[in-house]
Design a protein around this nucleic acid. Sequence first.
DNA 1: CTCGAAATTGGCAAAATTCACTGCAATAGG
DNA 2: CCTATTGCAGTGAATTTTGCCAATTTCGAG
Lengths: 153, 153
Amino acid sequence: MLDKYERLILKVLQKDGRASTQELSDAVDLSPSPVWRRVKRLEDDGYIQRYAAIVDSKKLGLGAFGYVQVSLVDHSENSITIFKHFVHKSEQVLECASITGDFDFLLKIVATDPEALEEFIMKHMLRLGVVRNTTTTFVLRRIKSSGALPVDM
Amino acid sequence: MLDKYERLILKVLQKDGRASTQELSDAVDLSPSPVWRRVKRLEDDGYIQRYAAIVDSKKLGLGAFGYVQVSLVDHSENSITIFKHFVHKSEQVLECASITGDFDFLLKIVATDPEALEEFIMKHMLRLGVVRNTTTTFVLRRIKSSGALPVDM
DNA sequence: CTCGAAATTGGCAAAATTCACTGCAATAGG
DNA sequence: CCTATTGCAGTGAATTTTGCCAATTTCGAG
């Protein structure tokens, strides 16, 4: 599957997505050409989906995070479509997953402040007409965020 | 604070962290040099914290995600330190936040499969001796993940 | 409100570095 | 001994980075 070099490369690239072939070569202790071939393969085969700049939320004035559990009024095709569409078009929804338990979805929401967060839920989410019930959990402090995926070694 | 070009640049770089100055220049409709200066400023001022490769979890054999709410046995300095240390050293813990509500922390965990996820909680987290209680919510399907932060425009 | 000086910012061009990418001989591993 | 992979070297291109001048905006004095 993945050899030790590929695993190392993934590890490094998750921490520094702009590492050049040369830098990777140094970090991984393998000459540039095989490193380059591996990176290319990792990209082509979809191990690396894309690259992204990680932005400081506070600097952007986004000081409030919350997790919102959502249950829908029904589970018709239509309701689900409406809700998913809302999730995808709303930039404030950072993550969304369907989950086990009493609720259908768990969303991670960002906003400038707690009031704005509540407003988002009230004014936008509940107005969809497909949401039966929600439970909001506010983030007091972010201890760890967007940790890299573990690459077994 | 941030002008419209900087906001656009952030928007693009969150989607493509490897966009070159030239590419940004085209996307933002501003010549390369001011674009370059802006990117540099965004990096130096900490708006851009770092760059990262986004890796496909399934390809790595990581097929199980879960959200785990955790409450500690007490809130002594010591217990909190132990728990936080565990969170930071555990690669399987992708996110952690202290939260409002009945629990103290909400963690996002990844594992190869549900059993491995449960094992992680049982064998590793509960063995810390500082965890009183946990509630695990399994992710059935990821609808949206790691969406870029909204940059007001 | 107008005018003009100062400061900021954009655009162009050039330089220098670095980078991606490709053959090929050497090498290692089975 | 054969196959797969490495390391090296080279090449051409793309990228970053800097300096300079023009354009634009800002802002205060009149």
